[in-house]
């Protein structure tokens, strides 16, 4: 029952000019109104109306007015539920969309904020195969979270969203298309493996120069620790390697990640490598700077800085 109905809906939307009117992306906020809300009986609605017809004929045949009254009441209530269904979308407002962060290939989390002046129930939102149901209280904002699969880095426009409901009785299916003029930024996917960023020599010396000589503590060996920091004597007394941890008041490793260093690679490979380096730098909590064509990001650290660098990478042509 459902499939032919959906085919019919799709056909109708292709055919009817009124239904295609809102195909162009539009800017937020989007408020639903009667010219963009569509309503058809659901499969259950059609079945139920056949049942009502049977009840009507039965009541008429047996000249049973009480049964006829009941049938009329049920039929009228079904018809009234159509208006309630319409009202469950009418006046609903999509005020803004917030996107999370995701690298290409992963799903990105979107938060859609809907607000409404009255209470609404059982509204469903379809986005590329994902359906979320939500309710809104009067004069509040509902934060609806759903995920959108991504393919490649860069700005990805949002697809059309379908807002639909079968509230209140499931007899009618009311829907509307939202096509917000908004894109989400997808970060580049880092390469899986590759060389470490080689810091410029002077920087390395600088690092060593500033490396504190005071031994603060011994800690477990981590991959990537310089060999000369291993405390061999102390390690001999344990069953794993220990590393001398030096007090480093200001001389955390400073990475200067530069687009120009990777001239041997093509653009996407460069971006993938830089992304991996950014990840490593972020994991090691060191501060780093990033040079990109037309965009120079000064050395800094922290998640905001990381997001800024990744976004810059993502937006490269």
């Amino acid at each position: 029952m459902r499939d032919p109905l959906q085919r019919f809906q799709r056909w109708a939307e292709q055919r009817l000019p009124a239904l295609t009117r809102f195909r162009r992306p539009e800017s937020l906020p989007i408020e639903l109104h009667r010219r963009r809300i569509y309503i058809v009986p659901s499969g259950f609605g059609i079945g139920f109306s056949i049942l009502l017809l049977v009840m009507l004929v039965g009541a008429l045949n047996y000249a049973n007015n009480a049964a006829l009254l009941l049938t009329c009441l049920l039929g009228a209530a079904s018809a009234a539920s159509m208006l309630v269904a319409f009202r469950s979308l009418d006046g609903l407002r999509l005020s803004h969309i917030r996107a999370g962060h995701a690298i290409a290939g992963q799903a990105i989390e979107l938060t859609l904020a809907f607000d409404s002046s009255r209470q609404r129930n059982a509204i469903r939102l379809d986005l590329s195969g994902d359906t979320v149901a939500f309710a809104i209280d009067a004069n509040t904002t509902a934060q609806v979270k759903l995920t959108l699969p991504t393919v490649q880095r860069g700005w990805q426009p949002l697809p059309r969203l379908r807002l639909w409901s079968t509230w209140p009785l499931g007899l009618f299916r009311v829907w509307s298309w939202l096509y917000p003029d908004q894109s989400v930024l997808v970060w580049p996917r880092p390469e899986v493996a590759g060389p470490s960023p080689h810091a410029p020599a002077d920087d390395a010396r600088h690092m060593r120069l500033h490396r504190g000589d005071e031994l603060a503590a011994l800690r477990d060996y981590r991959a990537g620790d310089p060999q000369r920091h291993i405390a061999w004597k102390a390690s001999a007394r344990h069953d794993h390697l220990l590393v001398k941890d030096f007090e480093q008041p200001q001389s955390r490793p400073q990475w200067q990640l530069d687009w120009r260093q990777l001239s041997a690679l093509d653009n996407e490979a460069r971006i993938a490598r830089l992304a991996r380096w950014l990840n490593e730098a972020q994991a090691q909590r060191c501060s780093y700077s990033l040079w990109l064509p037309g965009n120079e990001i000064a050395s800094n650290s922290g998640p905001l800085h990381y997001a800024r660098c990744m976004s810059a990478l993502a937006q490269l042509p």
């Binding site: 008429l60 006829l68 009254l69 009441l73 039929g75 009228a76 209530a77 009234a80």
Partner: peptide
Amino acid sequence: LSAAALPLALAAFLLVPR
């Protein structure tokens, strides 16, 4: 819902040809 539907139901009850 039933109360709102009552006027229509009554009209239908009166007018559905017996």
